[in-house]
């Protein structure tokens, strides 16, 4: 490691390093960010939820969307796996079913970025108790 030689230098180093702990900082106040939960039960994983999750994490990062992507258990929509739940800041959660990589791309571009609804929404049949 070369020495940090000025305040500007320190800030540059900080910006580079921040990526490493961004996940932790975002987890501290998730309500201000886009939160995505990917259903990762057996049926979800079997239908490709893991790939979708990795895709979401990578793409959101590339497209500069601050989001917390976490995994959750079976959401109960086994007929429509992989399913994901998206919570935009201050909005009600929306569940999307049969999320392929292509669908995931559409969800990021249309719903997450612009709030436009896209096909594949599953009416929520549950409420999360806080």
């Amino acid at each position: 490691m070369t020495k940090i030689k000025s305040l500007a230098d320190l800030r540059r180093v900080k910006d580079d390093l921040q990526e490493k702990i961004r996940l932790r900082e975002n987890a501290d106040n998730p309500e201000k960010l886009v939160q995505i939960k990917v259903g990762m039960a057996t049926s979800g994983i079997a239908s490709g939820a893991k790939e979708v999750m990795s895709y979401l994490i990578e793409e959101l990062d590339k497209r500069n969307v601050e989001a917390v992507v976490s995994q959750t258990g079976d959401m109960g929509y086994c007929y429509a796996e992989p399913t994901i739940e998206v919570i935009l800041p201050g909005k009600e959660p929306v569940v999307f079913g049969k999320v392929t990589l292509k669908k995931a791309d559409e969800i990021i571009e249309k719903y997450i970025k612009n709030g436009e609804l896209v096909d594949g929404i599953i009416p929520r049949n549950y409420e999360t108790i806080e």
């Binding site: 940090i4 305040l7 320190l10 800030r11 180093v13 900080k14 390093l17 921040q18 990526e19 490493k20 702990i21 900082e25």
Partner: peptide, 11 residues
């Protein structure tokens, strides 16, 4: 130290 700097350490 990198994690401390990432948290605005030494700024």
């Amino acid at each position: 130290i990198e994690e401390y700097i990432a948290r605005d350490g030494y700024s």
